[in-house]
């Protein structure tokens, strides 16, 4: 593989010719995408264009059909065996999966655990932190997302926006190198979207986290992203800084999509 190139650029995440099919349907078609450390990348595009699949592949929730995903120059989806790359086994994936964190559209908090328990479960049992250390970390993060006063509540007692902020804290408690945000405001009532966006804004500006975000919030993507990728039919149709994508899109599909979305608003 092109190792030399990796060392030269050293992107934090690299998708190399990644293809994903469901049956006869090709969801991702030879995708190439690099994400630099501390970069905030937004993925936009019509539904069914493979946006969410990109995140799910990187989170290793889906098997890869073709291509390789690299994390810090090392293969994530594959491992080296006798000098050639083979599909990674569960052991290999588990050894690096903690570097990636994900926030889901439907929050997916554990309903039988309190807010605090949600945030310490994996740090204690996966990372091996001491309980008081994990708790300290969780309390810090819950304070940052403004959920400290609810730390002993069960998720069913929280609003969607509150649940999503806890989910962000839970993912951050693993200290991931990349955060994946999968349409994190799509399931929320309009009045609570703002509180979640402001947390993400804070992560971006104060903590300089590497983030990959799928979103329908065009205004927000434009405001916070370093780079915006427009997906169409499993490919990146156009990518660039938000000013270029939103103000002077070159691709015909991008223009159509943006005008449809902006008119709808």
């Amino acid at each position: 593989m092109d190792n030399k190139e990796n060392i030269k650029h050293e992107p934090l995440v690299r998708f190399h010719e990644v293809t994903k099919r469901y049956g006869s349907l090709t969801v991702l078609d030879k995708l190439n995408l690099d994400i630099q450390a501390n970069e905030m990348v937004s993925i936009i595009g019509p539904s069914g264009s493979g946006k969410t699949t990109v995140l799910r592949m990187l989170m290793t929730l889906e098997m890869i059909d073709e291509g390789v995903i690299y994390l810090e120059g090392k293969p994530l989806t594959h491992m080296e065996s006798n000098g050639s790359l083979v599909l990674a086994d569960e052991k290999h994936i588990r050894s690096i999966r903690s570097n990636i964190g994900m926030v889901f559209q439907q929050f997916n908090l554990f309903p039988h655990m309190t807010v605090l328990q949600n945030c310490v479960e994996a740090p204690i049992n996966v990372l091996g932190l001491k309980p008081d250390e994990a708790e300290e970390r969780a309390i810090d993060l819950l304070g940052m997302v403004g959920m400290l006063d609810k730390k002993d509540e069960h998720p069913s007692r929280l609003s969607g926006g509150q649940q999503q902020r806890v989910a962000i804290a839970r993912a951050l408690a693993m200290r991931p190198k990349v955060m994946l945000l999968d349409e994190v405001t799509s399931a929320l009532d309009p009045e609570v979207i703002g509180e979640v966006l402001s947390v993400i804004r804070k992560l971006n500006s104060e903590h300089n986290l590497t983030m990959l975000m799928v979103t329908h919030q065009m205004g927000f993507a434009r405001e916070v992203s370093d780079r915006v990728c427009f997906f169409y039919e499993g490919k990146i149709a156009e990518q660039g800084p938000p000013s270029q994508i939103f103000e002077a899109p070159k691709n015909e599909r991008t223009k159509q999509f943006l005008s449809a979305v902006l008119n709808a608003n």
Binding site: M59, L61, R94, G101, L109, A122, N125, V126
Partner: peptide, 19 residues
């Protein structure tokens, strides 16, 4: 989604089932 959330926190299959 509960499976996926647990996986995204890198839980082992046994931990995922048990907890």
């Amino acid at each position: 989604q509960q499976w996926e959330a647990a996986k995204s926190l890198n839980m082992s299959p046994i931990l995922l089932m048990r907890r």
